[in-house]
Design a protein around this nucleic acid. Structure first.
Length: 306
RNA sequence: GGAGGGGUAGCGAAGUCUGGCUAAACGCGAUGGACCGUAAAUCCAUUCCUUCGGGUUCGGUGGUUCGAAUCCACUCCCCUCCA
């Protein structure tokens, strides 16, 4: 049993900044819990921490994939767990920092993903996607229902993505999606949630996007575009995919930038929904000054002593 | 001063000719939510007020009518063009 701390929250609340302070004060190492910062070359748009900002704190799971590579929750879960063990083995505190709720949850709840072998198969996925294209999403959903009506009860017809995934799991594992085995949790987590007034958060997001553009976001996105990014998973990232239509001459730069801001705000909202409802988070508002990093550290230390 | 065009819910925008089926399409935004291997993905719900019985709306006022966002009169504001 290992004790792990995690800092979660929406984009632009200041997770990175406080993570450094906490890691320093509590002798921790950071494990990024971010689905986009794993990619090399996506620095500005993902607000990735740069080496000169790390203050000597080791950071893991950043820049571990090429931009054209695939990465999944299971990969994350696997790698993160490995890091947790190594860091704990060094006698230091593993500190997960990131906004990808699904990733963090996979870790915290030890979701059954990576343990039973390779349950992901692009060819089979493609097969179901094609099936959907050919016969429609209703037919696709019906197919799932005939195989796993329990899964179908939870996945809407319109959510083709998840219907396909459920079908894929059945095809690959031979077991219904809804009956994949579950594990118990081995590690203990203290979840620090950073949040603030919604209006303020949105302002920060807008400002940060402007800053990103100033720092060369457009050029960075252009490189991704030139390299073939639109077809890659990394090309789905906010801050990048909104710029592609601009490169294609389909919208103005200004429109693209506004879209980045909007998508970021929507994203922040979804993140908040996730952390509010799916996890046992201890919330702090550092932005307004209502709470302080000191308080977080005190709470964290108390929890570590238990 | 003259000639046209327009004012509809947070915003944009239908509906007006052919009055009722319209608390008023649709889009956006906003808010809430789902989420078990693409998750910065994908999807869902709500959005005039409401004590959920109902109440009050389509610039304003007054008419016509069983009934008006829709027809008539007057009036206020906005835009374009001509002076």
């Amino acid at each position: 049993m290992t004790k792990v701390a995690a800092i979660v929250g929406p984009t632009a609340v200041g997770k990175t900044a406080s993570s450094i302070q906490i890691a320093r004060d509590l002798d921790g190492e950071v494990i990024s819990g971010d689905s986009m910062q794993v990619y090399k070359g996506l620095d500005i748009g993902t607000a990735k921490i740069m080496p000169d900002e790390m203050q000597g704190i080791p950071h893991h799971l950043i820049n571990i994939r090429q931009a054209d590579e695939h990465f999944s929750v299971a990969d994350f879960q696997d790698l993160a767990n490995r890091q947790i063990n190594e860091i704990a083995g060094r006698g230091r505190l593993p500190l997960i920092v990131g906004g990808t709720g699904f990733y963090v949850q996979a870790l915290v709840d030890n979701l059954n993903l990576g343990s039973n072998g390779n349950a992901e198969d692009p060819a089979i996925r493609k097969k179901w996607e094609d099936y959907g294209h050919a016969y429609g999403k209703q037919a696709l959903w019906n197919k799932l229902q005939s195989l796993d009506s329990e899964a179908t009860a939870k996945i809407p017809v319109n959510n083709v993505r998840r219907v396909v995934r459920a079908l894929e799991v059945i095809s690959v594992t031979g077991q219904p999606f809804s009956q994949q085995p579950q594990h118990d949790n081995e590690n203990q987590f203290y979840l620090i949630g950073l949040t603030t007034d919604r209006k303020v958060l949105y302002q920060r997001i807008n400002q940060r996007v402007d800053l990103m553009v100033k720092n060369g976001l457009v050029e960075e996105a252009r490189q991704l575009w030139d390299a073939g990014g639109p077809n890659w998973q990394s090309g789905k990232g906010i801050g990048y995919h909104e710029l592609f239509p601009y490169f294609a001459g389909q919208c103005s730069l200004n429109e693209a930038i506004n879209k980045i801001k909007l998508d970021s705000r929507h994203y922040a909202k979804r993140q908040l929904t996730w952390f509010r409802n799916k996890m046992n988070v201890h919330w702090y508002d550092l932005v307004s000054g209502k709470d302080s990093t000191k308080e977080i550290e005190v709470d964290l230390k108390n929890w570590l002593k238990k």
